[in-house]
């Protein structure tokens, strides 16, 4: 099973073991005017490793319900695994090109950024990153880092108990942000969440043309959403 079942189980476990601890939710941050100006600063542009396309099951559901949902969507999940990422891996190159258009010295970081290896920050200060990015200043020789993270790709379907409450929809979910590597603060933070329904019927195994079309539409819109703030 390649669904997010295990993530869900870990989330449930974390809920019971962490008491009333709350997670800080980062609000969107628009680009500060100075952040997109040419001022001899070097901006690194990086992406995290891309996830594979799969079916994500959402909603308030029991563990047995998850197993049932996984089985019900197994044909679609198998199809999702065959879908291409297209030019998504080169999104950082397009982002860097957009920054260069503005006269900014943008440097593409070739290797995938592994956020999990960065230390957590304890500061609850507004717009301070929850991970400490500052060691990357020296590692990559840049003053700030623009990160494009795609968290989820594929399809999402909502469930209540054993029953699907929505048709599957194509999904692209991620976050774009720029961190000042001296202050570890966000100079830009943009959640990206794109869903697209199939045009007409969705349940067309095994090629799922309606949902496949929706997937590539979501991919295109998702890329646009990441890049639009950099090109405006």
């Amino acid at each position: 099973m390649s669904f997010r079942s295990s993530a869900f189980l870990w989330a449930v476990a974390a809920l019971f073991t962490s008491g009333c601890a709350t997670t800080k939710v980062q609000s969107p941050v628009s680009f500060a005017p100075a952040a997109l100006k040419s001022n001899n600063q070097r901006v690194g542009v990086a992406m995290t490793a891309l996830p594979k396309a799969e079916v994500h099951v959402n909603g308030n559901i029991c563990l047995l319900c998850i197993v049932t949902a996984n089985a019900a969507n197994s044909t679609l999940n198998k199809h999702a695994a065959t879908l291409a990422l297209e030019d998504l891996p080169s999104l950082k190159d397009k982002a860097a090109a957009a920054l260069r258009q503005k006269g900014i010295n943008a440097v593409v970081i070739d290797e995938p950024l592994d956020i999990k290896t960065l230390p957590d920050t304890s500061s609850g200060t507004r717009n301070v990153a929850s991970k400490d990015f500052t060691p990357l200043k020296q590692k990559y020789g840049v003053d700030s880092l623009l990160v494009l993270e795609v968290h989820s790709l594929g399809f999402v379907r909502n469930y209540s108990g054993y029953i699907a409450t929505t048709d599957p929809r194509a999904l692209v979910r991620g976050t774009g942000y720029m961190v000042n590597l001296s202050t570890n603060t966000y100079e830009w933070y943009l959640p990206v969440y794109v869903t697209k329904n199939a045009d007409g019927k969705w349940d067309e195994p095994t090629a799922f043309p309606g949902l496949t079309n929706a997937y590539y539409q979501a991919l295109e819109v998702g890329k646009d959403n990441f890049l639009r703030p950099l090109t405006n």
């Binding site: 909603g59 308030n60 559901i61 909502n158 209540s160 108990g161 029953i163 409450t165 929505t166 929809r169």
Partner: peptide, 8 residues
């Protein structure tokens, strides 16, 4: 057209 997800 996404529905709500109440626990049933």
């Amino acid at each position: 057209s996404a529905g709500r997800d109440n626990l049933t």
